[in-house]
Design a protein around this nucleic acid. Structure first.
Lengths: 225, 225
DNA sequence: GCGTGTTTACTTGCGAGTAAGTAGAATACT
DNA sequence: AGTATTCTACTTACTCGCAAGTAAACACGC
């Protein structure tokens, strides 16, 4: 029986090849983020890597599989980041939430594909990527748990602090700030994605967090003078 | 000289035909919103209307022109709505802003295509639709003017109340609430787009508005007991 | 029998996926 | 060591299907 699946998926790769694979992944991440799935030409991905289109099929079964790999990569990083932020403050829920929100904002800013791809995935009416669901589920559970704890402990506003609405606002705000506003408002006197503006955004989002959850008497950790 | 442009654009239409044109526009609005430009098949638009695909070209020059028409339609409505809300409170900026935010949330909720299409337009890296820019510009000017007034009158927080960041948060939150969350969190125990949840969202967004602008001592108009 | 609205039946181009071939490195064989 | 063989990482050159756009014919009211 000669190898049936000559093409695509998991196989052992030499170190050289592993590098190309990562380059493909990263080129694809940028393009999928910028243009979305359908408007991304594999031709263009290949060109960025400096390789022929057909080479992509050596590493990934098809376009979809490449996309899924990208999604997985991006969201795994995100979830890990938020988790680690929460873990930094095991004693204070309020501080943990602040840290998590802060890190969320930073991650999205550092890797803007996150914002674009998250938005694109969120807008799909048909079913999501395998990869996406695999990460969305635990993320939501985490959030749910957090709110349950926060309300039980009396740290969060009793009734109106709701994970769903909180996530809409904080999630939406940052994702839109990074992925939407810059192109929406094209000729600004400042760079909307500069470090400075990021800090302004984070400050606002923390204020909002504070207000929505009703965190009692917390000075914002990163508030500027 | 026989008619050169047999196809597309502006022409006088009988009342019957005007109706079909509107049906096409509305079917296209839904599909473009759901799937985006590239993933929308004119075939499907036609089918919804109960007409053959080729008929669309009688009313619109090409796919792009149809899309532009949809965008124009949606955003004109939005801008008008917000303008009229502002006009309702010529004496109090604070109330005017609250009304505008409230109406914005409602409009997006009533016509969710707004959220989807706005997001899709905002994510484009290439240049926007003619129709979109034509509406974005005055909307932004309006916002800028509003903030200038608000700060001059001392109604808004002096330094940190910035139109760009404010729009990121309030705009992003609502748009994401309507267009993103429902599919992001698929099996919720409640309908995220019910009237009830809308009210919860609006309440939160007004709180956020209040906090970000530093509106002095305003009881939220729609706060529930 | 003429314009307005709609159809059927094409053309065309583009982009995903495939098949087969190949240079060169790695490994095996004597 | 030197030659043969196999594998790895690609390339070139196709196929194939789909969806936009076009041309010409056609229905139906006036």
């Amino acid at each position: 029986m000669v190898a049936k699946a000559r093409t695509g998926g998991a196989r052992r790769l030499g170190p050289r090849a592993e590098k190309t694979r990562l380059e493909i992944l990263s080129a694809a991440e940028e393009l999928f983020a910028e243009r979305g799935f359908s408007d991304t030409r594999l031709e263009d991905v290949a060109e960025r890597v400096g390789v022929r289109r057909a080479a992509l099929f050596y590493y990934f079964r098809d376009k979809r599989a490449l996309y899924e790999a990208v999604v997985e990569d991006v969201f795994e990083g995100l979830l890990a980041r938020v988790r680690s932020a929460l873990a930094e403050h095991p004693d204070s829920l309020a501080h943990a939430v602040e840290a998590a929100v802060s890190r969320w904002v930073e991650y999205v800013w550092e890797r803007p594909s996150t914002a674009h791809i998250l938005l694109r995935e969120a807008m799909r009416r048909d079913d999501h990527s395998e990869a996406f669901r695999a990460l969305a589920r635990p993320a939501l559970d985490l959030l749910g748990q957090l709110f349950a704890d926060g309300r039980r402990q009396g740290v969060f506003r009793p009734v109106t602090a709701d994970p769903f609405h909180f996530a809409s606002i904080v999630g939406g705000a940052t994702v839109f700030f990074v992925a939407g506003m810059p192109s929406l408002v094209p000729d600004l006197p400042f760079d909307p994605l500069s470090r400075e503006q990021l800090e302004a955004h984070r400050r606002d989002v923390l204020r909002v967090t504070h207000r929505l959850l009703g965190l009692p008497g917390l000075r914002l950790v990163t508030e500027s003078p």
